[in-house]
């Protein structure tokens, strides 16, 4: 199978809808098919990364658990849009999993060089 580079942009907060989980599942499915997968948190999507979440209190699954599996599926590095962090007064120390923070130009280049961008 021809390898394509896919960038998944996750832009929704974790529990208000099932979209956050949907993007993770789609990215894992792409990784299973040995595609080159980038995973970028943007806008409210960065709220998925906040530490000390316990979604059992609202009968949901804590999103961080699913995010930790990205690495096991070969998605080595989670990426975060720096502007989205700043807009929400978050910094690297507030985040639950190790991520690489991208500046505006790096985010733009990532989207530009990807074969496919899935934006949810």
């Amino acid at each position: 199978m021809q390898q394509k580079s896919l960038t998944f942009i996750t832009r929704q907060a974790p529990y208000g809808s099932n979209k956050a989980k949907l993007v993770i599942d789609a990215a894992l499915a792409a990784a299973v098919f040995e595609q080159q997968v980038n995973f970028l948190f943007m806008d409210d999507g960065v709220f998925q990364l906040v530490q000390n979440q316990t979604a059992e209190s609202i009968s949901s699954k804590t999103i961080g658990r699913a995010l930790e599996t990205l690495e096991l599926y070969g998605i080595e590095q989670a990426l975060v849009d720096s502007v989205s962090l700043e807009e929400r007064a978050l910094s690297a120390e507030d985040l639950a999993i190790p991520v690489k923070i991208l500046n505006v130009e790096q985010v733009r280049q990532l989207a530009a060089r990807s074969d496919v961008v899935i934006n949810l």
């Binding site: 894992l28 658990r65 070969g74």
Partner: peptide
């Protein structure tokens, strides 16, 4: 128990390796 999902093959193998 940890990740709250059953792993597909790729993740299972990575986890066994780890």
């Amino acid at each position: 128990q940890r990740y709250q999902m059953a792993p597909a093959s790729r993740a299972l193998i990575s986890y066994v390796k780890k």
